[in-house]
């Protein structure tokens, strides 16, 4: 009994509050990065609610420099930049996450089936994936939007179509290496069916990799989406969107610098936070 007890203690403490313990013992830099991520997500969710002014209405003098009343100044028609940036944060952030989630789900499902089935199913699915990978993402998005008309939804649709192949490849590779482990043979001998093996014995092993890749990928999407709407392919003015705000404000760069620069800084911060938090998530996953 004496020999058993220490193991029991560590065994019990490892089982459930496992993830939280990891976060609690993580280095300060990781905690900071994850904290900022949580904060940004919260701000993005609450954006319109905490915005002091209506982002679409002129509430003050045009092109007013930043003051206490208008922390980021006002734009050419007198709308509050702070409120507009907060709302822009929401649409960019949530759009990026929506595309990632879509990509992970579609790509993950295709990768899982291809990796687990192998043979000709694998070949067919992966060649289709290759075709999509061969298309240049931003140019195809431009083409799609040009064809069906510019709007945020159309842009998201176009980008989503292009984003999954990356995850399909990633998940497939992970599944293939897991499938070579004896635990799959053991599960097969235990009488677990094809679906059960896929769902219980393969998929959970690929999730950490996919989560890490996805969290590092958010920053790429933030920049891509902002870039597309800078080119006029995303949400249309006057909707508050960081990329299009930068684009439309560009003409006032020399007279009222804050109009294009403030949304640009927001984009920069967003991708920086996404990147550092992605790194931290990878560290945590590595350790677990």
């Amino acid at each position: 009994m004496a020999a058993v007890e220490p193991v029991l203690r560590s065994g019990a403490s490892l089982s459930r509050p496992h993830r939280w313990r990891l976060v609690r013992h993580a280095p300060l830099s990781d905690k900071l990065a994850l904290g900022t991520l949580a904060l940004i997500t919260l701000v993005a969710l609450l954006g319109p609610t905490i915005a002091p002014h209506d982002p679409l209405a002129a509430v003050g003098p045009a092109s007013h420099a930043p003051t206490w009343q208008y922390p980021l100044g006002t734009d050419e028609v007198g709308r509050d930049m702070f409120s507009r940036v907060l709302c822009g944060l929401q649409s960019t952030w949530l759009a990026a996450i929506a595309v990632i989630v879509g990509g992970v789900l579609i790509g993950g499902a295709i990768g899982l089936v291809a990796g687990a089935a192998g043979g000709w199913i694998d070949t067919i699915l992966m060649r289709i994936t290759d075709v999509f990978l061969a298309l240049p993402a931003s140019i195809l998005a431009i083409a799609v939007v040009a064809a069906i008309g510019p709007s945020l939804f159309h842009t998201l649709l176009a980008v989503s179509i292009l984003w999954w192949p990356y995850y399909a490849r990633l998940v497939r590779a992970e599944i293939r290496s897991l499938a070579a482990r004896p635990h799959l043979e053991a599960a097969r001998l235990a009488g677990v069916g094809w679906g059960g093996r896929l769902w219980r014995h393969l998929l959970p092993g690929a999730i950490p990799t996919a989560v890490v890749a996805a969290s590092l990928d958010v920053a790429n999407l933030v920049v891509l989406l902002a870039g597309l709407s800078f080119l006029g392919l995303g949400a249309q003015p006057p909707a508050p969107e960081l990329g299009s705000m930068t684009a439309t404000g560009l003409s006032s760069l020399l007279t009222s610098w804050w109009i294009p620069v403030m949304p640009a800084i927001a984009i920069f911060l967003l991708s920086l936070v996404a990147n550092t938090a992605g790194d931290s998530i990878r560290d945590l996953m590595d350790r677990s």
Binding site: H183, A186, A187, L189, R200
Partner: peptide
């Protein structure tokens, strides 16, 4: 039924012993 050489890799890492046996 079979018992493998490397027990560690013949058990699914994220499942508990109970889940493996109940399966």
């Amino acid at each position: 039924q079979m018992v493998f050489q490397d027990a560690g890799s013949s058990l699914t890492p994220w499942l508990t012993s109970r889940e493996l046996v109940e399966e």
